[in-house]
Design a protein around this nucleic acid. Structure first.
Length: 278
DNA sequence: AACCCGCGCAACCGCGAAGGA
DNA sequence: ATCCTTCGCGGTTGCGCGGGT
């Protein structure tokens, strides 16, 4: 049958996004909220594929994104979570408010991996590098720690998982609490927290107090990464308050004002007007 | 000044999952 | 049950930039 292309390849632009395109996408998302990504390019007047729009929005344009390097505590948390979750970047990202899976993945590959290697730790197994890979005991143990294999990924609630649950010490529920980096434990600062661990394995969001981009009670949006899927349902009060300011701040940080985006005040107002629809 | 090289990040690609018809 | 569409994820690529020679 063959796979359907995600979009009509003809006339679809690729490569880096221009400020003009960003402006169009932001403007559309603010105006209409998230709908079917496939329809977004057309509706927003972009010659991009929907997938590309989604990626651009979730990884770069979303108002709730943090910018800049990961802090030490965030980095530590990434290491902790990776030791339990493996390369499940979206899950890891869901524990780091304002960070995207792509960002974390990049940071892992460019910084953390090297750091761990320097420390003599295998970044994949989180075991000391000099351990014999064929040592079955080690493999058994490392399986508990590094559920990266497909078997481990596939069934979150098997007895294996139970054993992990009992074995595991889970991540801090707050990055701030995690900020006291203990260098002697490169990947061991996760505390007991069954709820969090359960949530890591399930698709349900852990009640992790982060930026509360509430959506309209709709499902999904279980992660910061996924939260890109739902444009925040700002209340009028919020639009007049912190969130509005956050978004404007963000846009200024991002340089959106350079787009000639003189409409931000209007955006706030129009968002208020259409709030019911979001 | 010119060239090379490595790094970091944004973006793309392909696959699988989910959900609807 | 099957097919089809859409979305999300993880791996990979490619380009821009800064540092070194």
């Amino acid at each position: 049958m063959g796979r359907q292309p995600c979009c009509d390849k003809l006339g679809v632009k690729k490569g880096p996004w221009t400020a003009e395109e960003d402006k169009k996408l932001i403007s559309f998302m603010v105006r209409s909220g998230q709908c079917c990504w496939r329809a977004v390019p057309k509706l927003a007047g972009l010659r991009r594929c929907g997938k590309s729009c989604r990626l651009r929005w979730t990884n770069y344009l979303r108002p709730d994104l943090k910018r800049g390097l990961l802090s030490d505590s965030e980095e530590q948390l990434v290491i902790d979570l990776h030791s339990h979750l493996g390369n499940r970047w979206s899950k890891i990202a869901s524990r780091l408010p304002g960070r995207t899976d792509n960002e974390i993945k990049n940071h892992w590959n460019t910084h953390i991996k090297k750091k761990l290697l320097k420390m003599g730790i295998d970044p994949m197994t989180h075991q000391p590098l000099n351990k014999e890979p064929n040592d079955h005991k080690n493999i058994e143990n490392s399986d508990k720690i590094s559920p990266k294999t497909d078997e481990n990924r596939s069934e979150p609630k098997t007895s294996d998982t139970k054993s992990i649950e009992t074995d595991i010490s889970t991540a801090n529920s707050s990055i701030d609490q995690n900020s006291s980096t203990d260098d002697s434990r490169p990947f061991g600062s996760i505390n007991d927290d069954e709820d969090l661990f359960n949530s890591l394995w399930s698709d349900e969001p852990f009640s992790f107090d982060t930026i509360s981009w509430s959506n309209n009670g709709g499902g999904g949006g279980n992660s910061v990464a996924a939260a890109g899927g739902d444009f925040p349902a700002w209340t009028p009060e919020e639009m007049n308050g912190d969130h509005d300011r956050m978004f404007l701040d963000y846009c200024q940080d991002f340089g959106v004002q350079d787009f000639g985006f003189g409409c931000f005040h209007e955006i706030g107002l129009s968002s208020i007007e259409m709030n019911g629809k979001l």
